[in-house]
Every structure is written in structure tokens, then in C-alpha cells.
Design a protein around this nucleic acid. Structure first.
Length: 419
RNA sequence: GUGGGUGUAGCGCAAUGGUUAGAGCGUCAGGCUGUGGACCUGGAGGUUGGGGGUUCGAAACCCCUCACCCACCCCA
């Protein structure tokens, strides 16, 4: 086909989809603002270094999934594959860390990853991204998940599972990593190709493998949760206790790991069986070292991202009550001279008005009015003009009556009928 | 990057290798001059994704290519 289409993995969002997006956005904003979060919008395009440093140079995202290119000056630029890096940069760049103890931020917008598209996965996708800087208290972790439950409840999403785990801090993870490597080293022959690669890259990710044999091998492996340092253990138990205070059921999945390097301690994933293979529609976790690693002061933080495309798959179409629409049907050039005055008068009154541009037959205009769901049709032809009146037809009960041909007066009259 | 599936009208679909590729929905027009939905009639709308091959004859069979979907991978 010679027609120009959207790029692979990119799509137009329209109709029901955009309504759902707007609902997700509105509901998110409502709860975020109630809980003291403020909005931040960071650029979609950033220096490539930012993502390499924050996400980790050995991750798949950085290795092969970024939209990266050189700008005219030769600098390497990248379309953001996730939001946290940019927000951390902004947090530091604006000196926010020196202005307030706790920063609660959110952003809503597009992210880009050069992946093969499939159900719930696109090259441009949208996230509601939430970050809290400045506290390592596990209550924050619980508060974030609680907020998600509020939001999901409001959107009518009921079937989902919250899985949580702790991946420990830098210290306990290093020790555990060595233990894990030695465990798998002796069982190398039974791991799939991908897991062999993971073994020296990021052995924790072997837990994510869907290969049956790998699952079998890793089912006997030591678990990080059994080897957390005391601090991390306390933190995780504190988190679980607060979740209990909120009366939110969670599933502790000791094999839950994340693909980004910066996560520490609490990690979580919210999944639904109705989504296909990409079943996580919200995920995140703590990143207590990232701010410091990015050149800022020691600042514990936690964040999460809601995948809007995926959540939209779970949100029913909320039917918006259709506003009554007035339709102006005119017959002939003389009547069309009233189009501008009528339009102005109705918009002045805050009333929605529609009309055809070409005029055409009355039947045609009536059909059009009906297809738009018009509550009233105003009919104006030579006869009415000579009598200085306009016909108002109520489309529901087919009543018709006349009003004086005075656009502002007509608009006021109809406005009263709507209230 | 790797596999599998699917590409026919705006949309969702039909058509044993055999006339001029069809119907539905939508759209436009008409149904005694200016009145909507239902109903009736008619019109417009196709390079059968694209290219090549086999054949007397291809939407169909073969090859290549592109796109979309699903899965691997990865992740929201």
C-alpha cells in the first residue's frame, strides 16, 4: 500500500481509546493531588548518557531498545524509554532536594522503546509515573500501592494481583549474587541460552525465565529474601505490616525481580490475567542509591509506573452522558446568513450547536441532526424569514413551536429549557 | 532480533483454480417540491497489501517483499 501509515509500534489514539486514556489520567490526577503529589513534565528527548547511567548499561533497554540518534551537532540523544531518569535529573537540576524534605512528583506522557510490538506493547506507549524522593520509610511504599488500589477501584478494575518482593540493598544483593552464581554455575548444562547470558549479566533475572527446565533448576536455588540483611528484612516486614494496615492483600513472590539496575529493597508488580503475555500493567520499586549515583545527595526514593495502554485494556468504556445538542437547519442562502449569528449566540450561552456546511435538503439535514443526537433542531427557511420566526423542533417528542427570529433570544430560551 | 498466524470496499467479512470479485454495516441520494430514527429503491466506493512465477485461466497454488496480530525476548 502506498499510503503513509504510522510507524511500526506507533499508533493513533482516538475514539473510545482516547476517552479511556482521559479517564485514567483524570482519576490518577485526582488521587495524586489528594495525596500531595505535584505534576512535572520533563522533556521526551534527553542526552543518551542520562539513561545509560540510570538504567544501567547492561540492561536490555539500554543495549537494544532505545531510540537513539545523533543530532546535528553530533551529540547522542535518546527518546526516553522510561520516566524516572528524567525526573531524577530534574530533581537534581532544579535543586528541589534542597528546597523540601520530601518531593512527591508525577508525570504523564509517552515513552519509547524499540521493541517488537505485541499485545499491550508498543514502541510509543504512555505511563503515569509517580516518584517519591527523600524518605526510606516503608510507609511510603505502602502508600503508593494503596493509592493504586484507590485508582483501580475508581476505574472499576477489580481483577488484579499485587505481587511484592524485596531485592535488598547494595550490600546484601552483592553477597547473594555470588551465592546465586555459584549455584547456577554447577547447573549450567540445564539452563537455556538466554539464562546463560543472564548468568553473567544479571543472574537474578534467571527467575524471570519461562522455560520449564530453567524454572525447575531455579526452583531449588537460594532466594534473596532468605539472605537479606537485617535492615532490609525489617524494611520489608514493615512494608508488609503497613499493607496490612491498609487492608490490602498482597502476594509475596520471592522470585519477583526487576529488569532495571537501580532497584533496591521493595519491588512490586501488579498483573492481570486479562492482558496476554504482557500482563503487568503497573510496576515499580525503591531506588535508594540512584539519586546519589547521579551526582546528588544521598536520597532514598521510590517510584512506579502505570502502563496506560495496558490499563486501558482493563477499563470498561465509561459512557459519557451525551449533552443535548442543538442543530441549526437552514434552507437557502438567505437563511444561511443567520448561521454566524446563531452560532455566536449559542456559544455565548455555553450551548453546543451543530449545523451542516453545505445546507442540502431539509431531509438530509434532519438525518444529519439525528445522527448527531440533536435534542432540538432549529429550522429556518424563506417562509419563516418572511414571518420573522424560527421553528424549534424537539427531536424526542416531535413537538414543534415557533420563536421570534432573534438569535440571542433563541439561545437564551433554549438554554432555559435545558435546565 | 527469532518463530507462528492473518492481509479482499471506509469497517467487520464471503467467494471448489473458472463469467464482469459479492452481500451486510456505514456513506450519499431519492421515496409527489420543507421535517430525523424504521422501512423501500438506487448510487458511489476494489491495483483482492506489493512484486514476480506456475496455469488456457489466480483473491486462491509457489517464491520474494511489506504491513498487522500473537508469542519468544523484554517490560509498563
Amino acid at each position: 500500500m502506498g499510503k503513509i501509515r504510522t510507524l511500526r509500534g506507533f499508533r493513533d489514539i482516538l475514539g473510545e481509546d482516547i476517552e479511556k486514556f482521559r479517564r485514567i489520567e483524570n482519576v490518577s490526577r485526582r488521587y495524586l493531588e489528594l495525596l500531595g503529589f505535584t505534576e512535572i513534565a520533563t522533556p521526551v528527548l534527553e542526552s543518551t548518557d542520562l539513561f545509560i547511567r540510570s538504567i544501567g548499561d547492561a540492561t536490555d533497554i539500554v543495549e537494544k531498545e532505545m531510540f537513539t540518534f545523533a543530532d546535528l551537532g553530533g551529540d547522542s540523544l535518546t527518546l526516553r524509554p522510561e520516566a524516572t531518569a528524567g525526573i531524577v535529573r530534574a530533581y537534581l537540576q532544579s535543586g528541589m532536594y534542597a528546597k523540601e524534605r520530601i518531593s512527591k512528583l508525577f508525570t504523564i506522557g509517552p515513552m519509547f522503546r524499540h521493541e517488537r510490538p505485541q499485545k499491550g506493547r508498543f514502541r510509543q506507549f504512555h505511563q503515569v509515573d509517580v516518584e517519591v524522593f527523600g524518605s526510606n520509610d516503608p510507609f511510603v511504599d505502602a502508600e503508593l500501592l494503596w493509592m493504586i488500589t484507590l485508582l483501580l477501584e475508581d476505574l472499576g478494575v477489580k481483577k488484579y494481583i499485587m505481587e511484592v518482593n524485596s531485592v535488598g540493598c547494595k550490600l546484601c544483593r552483592e553477597g547473594f549474587r555470588a551465592m546465586l552464581v555459584s549455584y547456577f554455575e554447577t547447573r549450567k548444562d540445564r539452563l537455556c541460552e538466554d539464562c546463560l547470558r543472564r548468568l553473567d549479566r544479571n543472574p537474578l533475572r534467571i527467575f524471570d525465565c519461562k522455560n520449564l527446565q530453567c524454572i525447575e533448576v531455579s526452583s531449588g536455588s537460594p532466594l534473596l529474601s532468605d539472605h537479606l540483611c537485617t535492615g532490609c528484612q525489617d524494611h520489608f516486614h514493615g512494608f508488609l505490616a503497613y499493607m496490612d494496615d491498609f487492608r490490602i492483600p498482597v502476594v509475596v513472590n520471592k522470585r519477583l525481580v526487576r529488569g532495571l539496575d537501580y532497584y533496591t529493597r521493595t519491588v512490586f508488580e501488579i498483573t492481570s490475567d486479562e492482558l496476554g503475555a504482557q500482563k503487568a500493567f503497573t510496576a515499580g520499586g525503591r531506588y535508594d542509591n540512584l539519586v546519589e549515583e547521579m551526582g546528588g545527595p544521598e536520597t532514598p526514593a521510590i517510584g512506579l509506573a502505570i502502563g496506560m495502554e495496558r490499563l486501558a485494556l482493563l477499563v470498561g468504556n465509561g459512557e459519557l452522558p451525551r449533552k443535548p445538542v442543538c442543530f441549526f437547519a437552514y434552507l437557502g442562502e438567505k437563511a444561511k446568513d443567520y448561521l454566524a449569528p446563531m452560532a455566536k449566540a449559542f456559544i455565548d450561552q455555553g450551548l453546543s450547536i451543530r449545523y451542516s456546511y453545505e445546507g442540502k435538503s431539509l431531509k438530509s439535514q434532519m438525518r444529519y441532526a439525528d445522527s448527531l443526537g440533536a435534542g432540538f433542531v432549529l429550522i429556518l427557511g424563506d417562509e419563516e424569514i418572511s414571518k420573522n420566526v424560527i421553528i424549534v423542533r424537539n427531536m424526542k417528542n416531535k413537538d414543534q413551536f415557533e420563536l421570534p427570529l432573534d438569535p440571542p433570544g433563541i439561545a437564551v430560551e433554549l438554554r432555559q429549557r435545558f435546565h
